[in-house]
């Protein structure tokens, strides 16, 4: 099972601290140091509806529609998560269309000056990567002031499922079967 980050909506206060933490944890190549509307690309988005506030982000689907749809093999499974190999991304946006959670965003970044300098921009497909290269773990989870974001891995899922089953057993009324 892939690991994934999910929020408890009842504890989200819609403050967007996670969005900023995410954007700062993933600086885009060639961009300026300071955040600006032009380079603000958080991989999770806080949605405020009529009755709910919650960050929405990649569910790291085990049978990932984005990976299945990608024509250039840029989306792969690695370390129990779905990761994008940016060097292979051609910016076709098929993954954006395929994702049922709206968790993928394709954008372009200025190309780092190479020998040939043939291209001015490089496409990137941005989604939650679980801050996989950050030894401190996911930036959003650490920054959330109400601690509504959680990493769910196989162990945690098993613990939750076990607890739910136990609760379900207790809730069963005596049945005359």
């Amino acid at each position: 099972m892939n690991r994934f980050i999910i929020a408890e909506p009842q504890n989200c206060i819609g403050c967007r601290t996670c969005e900023v933490a995410c954007a700062l944890a993933h600086p885009l190549p060639g961009g300026e140091d300071m955040l600006s509307p032009a380079n603000f690309n958080p991989r999770l988005k806080v949605i405020k509806g009529a009755r709910v506030s919650t960050p929405v982000l990649c569910r790291q689907c085990d049978d990932a529609p984005c990976a299945n749809a990608c024509p250039s093999g840029a989306i792969v499974r690695r370390d129990d998560s779905i990761q994008v190999l940016q060097e292979r991304c051609v910016g076709c946006k098929t993954c954006m269309v395929a994702c049922p959670y709206g968790a993928m965003e394709v954008t372009t970044v200025p190309q780092a000056a190479g020998v040939l300098k043939s291209r001015a921009a490089k496409a990137v497909a941005l989604k939650c990567d679980l801050c996989i290269d950050n030894p401190a773990g996911p930036a959003c989870i650490a920054s959330c002031p109400t601690k509504c974001l959680h990493m769910v891995d196989q162990q945690r899922m098993a613990a939750i499922t076990k607890q739910r089953r136990e609760q379900a057993a207790l809730d069963v009324p005596s049945l005359p079967l």
Binding site: C15, T17, V20, T146
Partner: peptide, 17 residues
Amino acid sequence: GELCLKGYYGWDFLNDT
């Protein structure tokens, strides 16, 4: 040990941006 976004990201005015 918790802060909100102003606490975490509200300091760079000190650098006269």
